[in-house]
Design a binder for these strands. Structure first.
Lengths: 210, 210
DNA sequence: CGGCCCATTGACAGGCATCAAGTCCGGTGG
DNA sequence: CCACCGGACTTGATGCCTGTCAATGGGCCG
């Protein structure tokens, strides 16, 4: 398993790869590095004492994760797909943060990238009804997923979506089927999907009844 | 758990009062000020398009809320009890943030105060089972609630707890009754409670009891 | 080819949201 | 001081949602 212990002090924007399922950092490790995603998708995972597994957020290219917002990382970051990333030492990250504040007057844009999805997930799983949560989830990610031939490349397993939505994989499957039957989405192939009726998707997500 | 030492950012800042239910700032307003709680309890509220209401977090004395983590506030902050607070202009807040970084090497302790409870709420409401969520919630707040005569002063309405836990007030009521019958907590008076068996509370919160 | 993981579907039970009614409490105004 | 009122809490009854278990099929990789 990958452990960020041997990362050079001055990475100088060297891109590193991480394979499918590999951990970038682990919950509880000291926040020595900030990880910037260059390509691929990552997930933030928390394990409960009882063994339950939750996904706090999905992260996309451009996001910075592992911010030293506490003494140690609050979740484990794993690569969902194969991933490319750059890691920044904490000191250098601080430095660039302060610099961006001086130059642009904006201190925290990079903090959004991690905190905002976590906040949004809290709102999403606080909603009632499986379809509502599922649609709200789609709305929150489809714009960040890559597109190909008019289809959205959708490399998230239903198991992961279930862990994100605090539900069961079976329920996710049934929800997807229902959305297909409602002609809201289509899934021509595995890991591909098309949004047929975005307005309806948003309507369901906002709580309108079927 | 994060426990900030109560140190006002700016000694000259004027304390202001806010009454029961009053809003400190509203979702969507530009983030011009950071609010520092001096006394009382506040809640972060989000309203859905359908009218549902969620509480993202409760905030306690010493917490700084309304951080400019985005262009505009992501939730409305309301006083749960009567509250005293200080508000800092964004520029002055930035300044003290950078100063604390230079002097202590810690840039972000104050950011924890807002982000950490939001993160924790996501984990809590992702758990399965009403009792589990309820106990996890108690664990996360009882150490920050004031104490009096060995009893915890507990000024949160069940309606608010329900909005926080993404459940119904009736379920919260039933869950509380169950915990009383299990001799885990006692509630001698309204707005007062005693934790009789903290180990059990934590056991339930960690998922031991089905 | 065989093993494994994921997706799918059905059956079923249980949890919890919802509705409804009743009680208690604090606040307000007469 | 008391009557009134609205909001919060409590409790019961009911039905739906969805979590769980089980079995099957399909795709991927060694």
């Amino acid at each position: 398993m990958y452990r960020p212990a041997f990362v050079p002090i001055h990475p100088d924007a060297i891109e590193r790869p991480a394979g499918h399922g590999e951990a970038l950092f682990r919950e509880g490790d000291p926040c020595d590095y900030v990880f910037e995603l260059c390509g691929g998708i990552a997930r933030g995972v928390s394990f409960m004492a009882s063994g339950e597994r939750q996904i706090s957020a999905f992260f996309f290219p451009g996001d910075q994760i592992g911010l030293p917002v506490a003494e140690s990382y609050r979740f484990t970051a794993e690569a969902v797909t194969d991933v490319r990333y750059v890691c920044h030492s904490r000191a250098r990250w601080h430095e660039s943060l302060v610099r961006s504040w001086r130059e642009e007057g904006r201190l925290l844009p990079s903090i959004c990238a991690e905190q905002d999805p976590i906040f949004r997930r809290g709102i999403i799983i606080g909603r009632h009804g499986l379809l509502v949560r599922l649609c709200a989830f789609f709305i929150s990610v489809i714009d960040r997923l890559p597109e190909e031939d008019g289809m959205i490349v959708y490399p998230l397993s239903q198991v992961d979506v279930a862990a994100y939505l605090a539900t069961s994989p079976e329920s996710v499957c049934r929800g997807l089927r229902q959305l297909r039957e409602m002609r809201v989405i289509a899934a021509p192939e595995r890991e591909r999907m098309v949004v047929l009726d975005r307005a309806r998707l948003e309507a369901i997500a906002s709580g309108a009844h079927s």
